[in-house]
Computed example of a mutant assay.
Amino acid sequence: MPRRYLEPLPGGASRLILREGTRVLEDRVVTQVPAAWAALAAACEAAPPPILPGLPADRPLVMGVINVTPDSFSDGGDHFRADDAIAAGEAMVDAGADILDIGGESTRPGAERIPPAEEIGRIVPVVAALAGRAPVSVDTRNAATMQAALAAGARIVNDVSGLTHDPAAAGVIADADCPVVLMHMRGTPATMNALATYDDVALDVHDELADRLAAAEQAGIARGRIILDPGLGFAKTAEHNLELLRRLRLFRGFGRPLLVGASRKRFIGHYGGAPDPKARLPGSLAAALWAAINGASILRVHDVAETVQALRVWRAIAGG
């Protein structure tokens, strides 16, 4: 059956696309959405649902990144000691982070996996120490790590594999009835760069996320618990990342909160002329603000204080 896509455009127009497989059957811009597309239009226009009770639903949330790893692409080793990671998390909360995303395994391009037991040993003390300060998300592909982190106080699971890596992961999420981030990715961190080939990156990523969303629901995960992430930098070229940001509103048609993680990524260095990931703050803020304006519900960032300030100024200008 052909798939429908509705992409809101600046000025109130909408782009309507009908596609069967990779064959485009219809692609037109309209100023009035036909009745057959009304449900998609309503989903795109609706306010995103709350992520967790107590978290603001009227603005994008800031998710602070804490990598308890020696080899993450932008901050590997900075928070490898538990005490350093905990101190970083405390500082992020004080700076305005709404959520802390704690991970113990690097998923940078070319990264090799580590045993779940090692991952658990890295993150559980950090999760336990910070869970009382802010909602904690655990960044992991492994069911055993999900279980351990949830038991230690984590409230959200962020799986870069979209629940494809570990067959037991979906059952853990369904049993816990917790929010889960399903990110788009192809292959593994070791193989994904070779899989960055698309007919239309926005539509192809949309379709593959739709498949992951359906699989999660079939596994017993409530649709209301699912957050979607287009996966910037994961099996994507620099131009693919730009195209996904340009067309981010397309993904609002799912009616689910969107998470965008552009912070310090390679494409920002590429276009911004900043080889050092820690020198990519201005470009990261530009991408974060673009994502916020175009429908992101959660911004996953390394530089919390600066992002919070940028969002506050943007909202003041916008009058909200």
Rank of each mutant, 00 (worst) to 15 (best):
L6K: 11
E7Y: 04
S14G: 02
T22C: 00
L25V: 01
V33I: 15
W37A: 12
A39M: 12
A42V: 13
C44H: 02
I51P: 03
A57C: 05
D58E: 10
R59P: 08
P60N: 11
V68W: 06
V68P: 03
D75F: 10
A82H: 15
A91M: 10
V93N: 04
A97S: 04
L100G: 04
P109K: 08
E112T: 02
P116V: 05
I123Q: 05
L130K: 02
P135V: 00
T145L: 12
A154R: 04
V157N: 15
V157I: 15
T164A: 08
G171D: 13
V180D: 00
M185D: 00
N193Y: 00
T197G: 05
Y198P: 00
D204S: 00
A210P: 01
R212M: 08
E217I: 13
A219D: 11
I221G: 10
I221W: 11
G224M: 15
G224C: 14
R225D: 08
I227M: 06
D229N: 09
L232K: 14
A235T: 09
K236H: 13
L245T: 13
R246N: 09
F251I: 04
G255A: 14
R256C: 13
L258D: 01
A262V: 09
R266M: 08
H270F: 14
G272S: 13
P275R: 10
P282C: 11
A286F: 02
I293H: 10
N294S: 09
I298M: 04
R300M: 05
H302Q: 14
H302F: 14
A305D: 02
E306I: 04
V308G: 02
A310Y: 07
V313A: 08
V313C: 07
W314N: 00
R315A: 15
G320H: 15
